[in-house]
Design a protein around this nucleic acid. Structure first.
Length: 213
DNA sequence: AAGACCAGGCTGATTACATCA
DNA sequence: ACTGATGTAATCAGCCTGGTC
């Protein structure tokens, strides 16, 4: 028996990526993706391409090829509603739902299995897309910051752009680097002397904003 | 305009294997 | 250790739809 999720009405997916502590860095639009949403596409008219018990028996005995079952709109609606309430069914629920839908319990079970699998797939695809875009924007930001660092290093002569908070002396641009956590320029000397937790930071004149996704 | 053909997507079903009581 | 129930993952296969010729 698999362990049921603590919140059966929602699936939580955690993605581990270098530079990302958790999927918490995902925006709500992706984190709270409504995986209960009915996947697009499908059949417009209610229809059964019938496959009754007899057909099933025949097909397994080398009879005519079986037709594929299509759920009616009403059956799909009920199944979706049930899925929204619970992503898994206990045997009693399965039995009741099957009876209500005039389906076999096995068919209800299969529907839920597929629904879970395809919801998860959809969610994974969306998160993958988000992470790709996020990676792209971070790469671009990194490029800009690298350029800025190069420019600062080139400005060895001239008015100081960064003042040491300790001595009020200008810091050579060549000693500067980016603090990856707070996105601020830090003095390498300060980093070495005090460590990352007590770093004296100085905000760059141009703060690079991460474009919204 | 109508019909044949094809590719791709959707979806019900099956199979293999894992996990747990 | 074995078993049965139930889960996931991968895959198959029928059907639908939209595009092209």
């Amino acid at each position: 028996m698999a362990v049921l999720p603590s919140s059966p009405s929602s699936l939580e997916l955690t993605i581990s990526m270098p530079g990302f502590a958790s999927s918490q860095s995902l925006p709500p639009s992706v984190r709270n993706l409504d995986i209960n949403q009915v996947p697009s596409g499908g059949v417009e008219e209610d229809q059964w391409i019938t496959m009754n018990m007899e057909d099933e028996e025949e097909s397994s005995n080398g009879g005519p090829p079986r037709k594929k079952l299509r759920l009616t709109k009403e059956q799909s609606r009920l199944l979706e509603e049930s899925f929204r309430q619970n992503h898994t069914l206990n045997p009693k629920q399965k039995e009741n739902l099957a009876m209500q839908l005039m389906l076999k319990p096995r068919q209800v079970e299969v529907w839920f299995q597929n629904r879970r699998a395809r919801s998860k797939l959809k969610q994974t695809e969306m998160e993958c897309e988000f992470l790709k875009r996020r990676f792209g924007s971070l790469t671009e930001q990194n490029r800009r910051l690298q350029r800025e660092v190069e420019e600062l290093r080139a400005m060895k002569v001239g008015p100081p752009t960064v003042i040491s908070p300790n001595s009020c002396e200008p810091l050579p641009a060549s000693t500067l680097s980016m603090c990856p956590r707070c996105e601020r320029v830090t003095s390498n000397a300060a980093l070495i002397n005090k460590g990352p937790t007590k770093t004296a930071t100085t905000t760059l004149s141009t703060k690079v904003a991460v474009p919204p996704l």
